[in-house]
Design a protein around this nucleic acid. Structure first.
Lengths: 245, 245
DNA sequence: CCGAACCTACTGGTCCAACCAGTTGACGGG
DNA sequence: CCCGTCAACTGGTTGGACCAGTAGGTTCGG
């Protein structure tokens, strides 16, 4: 009741960000958006602290995170310089990137992520069918059941669908696929980032998913790959149909 | 001359690590290796600082990086808890992971990375052939020439090969592929991580790469995908042939 | 006896101030 | 003109203090 009342008042949950989070976010956006060209020196830590009215340590913590993402290169004595994220940043950047529409058109990014999902999901399904142990195959079968049971609640189905694919990717025995899957799930595939109509068809195709699980259980690598490809490719070519406001 | 002399003396460049780097490395290895189970609380910042005889700020900077990697979840007031990296860590973890053989068998990890490279490289080649603009196609052709010219120096060829694939991935117009490519290159594909004999055949196949570039230039998506698949798949199934010491 | 308020001893978050350690570039002597 | 010197940066590290939020035990009221 109370929650409903508050929602009606147009109140949103207060953003939790700590100071260093804000610094991190601002610098990240500034770098990715091109406000700083690759090779450019960032303002000194002391200067950033002064401008943002923030302690130097907060700035340093933010810089460490940027460094971890591959956005800057820090060197003692010299200035902290901006790196070309198209060259040095890893896939984890995609997790942060879905927050900013300015630079990378979010539509394109969503397409890219769906494309990569299809690419990896197909091969993961194939490998899972070929390499997974009996227990994992059973887990996949269970997961697809849980997914089907979630119908027709789209949100629950989405969640169960992710769990299902996690089982498949895990069954592929490929750690790189698993980590990439995490990056994608944590990024653009996060709730509300992908236009709903773009995946409803896929999510509602319980029969297709059941077939996929059966092929995996049978150890039919090529068949599983084909079925996965069918399931995952559709949303990529689906109409962009951006909700125009 | 001097360098040669020093090399003969078996002197290696001194490891540059800062204090917080060391803390980061130790905690990362401890977490990934399972010394801390998911959900376990990490020792408090003050305690870590005391144990490692390091200032608390250094610990905090290390923790920020772990947080960025998705290895821990910090919450004010509560303890910093370890996350299950197989669920929360992104592909960037692979970059750091190739340093530790203890947990993940490096052989398996190399195989995984090569598999993912094949998977993404194939689709990237396809998309590049279909979507790239004329300038990018020309760049691919140039890159393959530069790659062929690097023969027979394997190191140079490796570097030129990476540059070539970067052009292709860039030409695919898929930002996710580009970032994943960076993660892979920065990780296990880094110098000396992949057993040389496993890729020599691929690297020496200049004819195959020329063919790939030609197919891309012609806009033959399926052809480019097939050729890329041929080039990239071979090393995956190549003999493991680990150099036993 | 049970539940709720409270209080305390933690946790991480932030700040200030100082100093160490490399880098850079200007300056002056050779 | 070249090279060493030095001063004015840069990031790296430390100590200490305090704020803020959490968790768990204690106590008080029912």
């Amino acid at each position: 009741m109370l929650a409903v009342t508050l929602l009606a008042m147009n109140l949103r949950p207060v953003p939790r960000g700590s100071v260093s989070d804000h610094v991190f976010g601002q610098l990240r956006d500034a770098i990715v958006s091109g406000s700083y060209a690759p090779g450019d020196p960032l303002p000194s830590e002391r200067e950033l602290g002064a401008v943002l009215t923030v302690n130097r340590h907060a700035v340093r913590e933010a810089l460490r995170r940027l460094q971890q993402l591959g956005l800057v290169r820090v060197s003692q004595g010299g200035a902290t310089r901006v790196l070309d994220w198209r060259v040095h940043a890893g896939l984890d950047l995609a997790m942060s990137l879905t927050q900013v529409d300015e630079v990378l058109p979010i539509d394109t990014l969503v397409r890219d992520v769906l494309e990569m999902r299809a690419c990896i999901g197909t091969d993961a399904a194939r490998l899972c069918a070929l390499r997974a142990d009996p227990a994992t195959r059973a887990a996949v079968t269970d997961a697809v059941t849980g997914y089907a049971d979630a119908a027709p609640d789209l949100d629950q189905m989405d969640q169960a669908n992710i769990a299902l694919w996690r089982q498949i990717v895990q069954g592929s025995g490929n750690t790189a696929y698993l980590l990439a899957f995490n990056s994608l799930v944590g990024g653009a595939l996060a709730v509300g980032r992908v236009p709903p109509q773009r995946r409803t068809a896929e999510l509602l195709d319980t029969a297709g998913h059941r077939r996929l699980a059966a092929l995996i259980a049978d150890g039919d690598g090529d068949g599983a790959a084909g079925q996965a490809h069918t399931l995952l490719t559709a949303p990529v070519t689906a109409p962009t149909e951006r909700t125009r406001t």
